[in-house]
Design a protein around this nucleic acid. Structure first.
Lengths: 166, 166
DNA sequence: CATCACCATTGCATAATGCAATTCTTGCCC
DNA sequence: GGGCAAGAATTGCATTATGCAATGGTGATG
């Protein structure tokens, strides 16, 4: 655009473009990983498991909030996960109006397998990056992540590979 | 698994971890962007619009394949988008068994607004990255993207921010 | 022209969602 | 202590998203 530019306009554009592109790749990997490992589970269900995996047992409302869905949706998704044997409902001794939802061993296992798979996919890509570039990558990504995390201490169900809402 | 590792195991791990973290951040941004701009549209619907936006008018089967969903799902999602005024069905003069689906002006507009929003979100983060790190970022991300794209010439509906399937 | 492959659509069943009750449980105020 | 407001989970209802399996048309090939 401009030849005599503000200190960094074009540079920012270039980086933004690069991030956007990398973003697509990463999202594709997440999707693929769940599909490859977690056969008969749906993405929303898996996201819920990931949330439980990273924040331990949660009460229903917290869980729903963390996932960004309505509590009723969480209730019913938990129903299905319990039926499938991946999650369990536990009554809270301190307050009988709340329950806590946690992973079963099978559930934790599933989450671990998907994470491992994804880690492997990414590692495979990293292996193909020329050594000279690698050091730069870590620094660059950390810088990016730090810059992005300042405002919101984002959590992890996004980790599942996607969101959903409406 | 193996304790005696190849020359660079740790380095790969570090990068993988960094990528994983950045990945979460990026996915969150995508989600937020659609939510912020595209009021009464759902994510699957929006993904379809993005696909149309990046590959021009498509026949239904191609569209479904691109999104990774069943043609019947695509048919019905298109129905809703047409009703909402974001997409249009056109008969193909060359072959009456096919149709093509394209964006309306309103549809293209919606996609553009979301993309702009997301670009802005990312740019805002990039602006906070120390200058010294920026050059490295572009190179590093490009190296990563190239390494990742080698096998699959990944497309773009992932661009929407997420996937869905089952 | 007869069959086979391809395309879009529709039927059917299940999952995911949100919003609006409903039912308990807690807490708090008088 | 009684009662009432707020909080938590669930259930009812309607819409969307999905996949699989027909169905009805269209094109192509022999």
């Amino acid at each position: 655009m401009s030849d005599e530019k503000p200190p960094h306009g074009d540079e920012v554009d270039a980086i933004t473009e690069a991030v956007l592109t990398a973003s697509r790749l990463l999202v594709g990997i997440s999707a693929k990983s769940v599909a490859a490992v977690a056969g008969p589970i749906t993405l929303p269900q898996f996201r819920l498991l990931v949330a439980l995996g990273s924040r331990g047992p949660l009460k229903l409302v917290s869980l729903a909030e963390m996932l960004g869905v309505n509590p009723s949706t969480a209730t019913r998704t938990v129903d299905r996960l319990v039926t499938a044997g991946w999650a369990e409902r536990n009554s809270n001794p301190d307050s009988r109006r709340e329950i806590t939802v946690g992973l079963t061993t099978a559930g934790r296992d599933l989450v671990d397998r998907v994470t491992e798979y994804r880690r492997g996919e990414i590692a495979a890509i990293v292996e193909r990056i020329p050594h000279e570039q690698r050091a730069g990558l870590v620094q660059a990504l950390q810088a990016f992540t730090e810059a992005g995390e300042e405002p919101p201490p984002r959590a992890s169900p996004y980790d599942a590979g996607l969101t959903h809402w409406t």
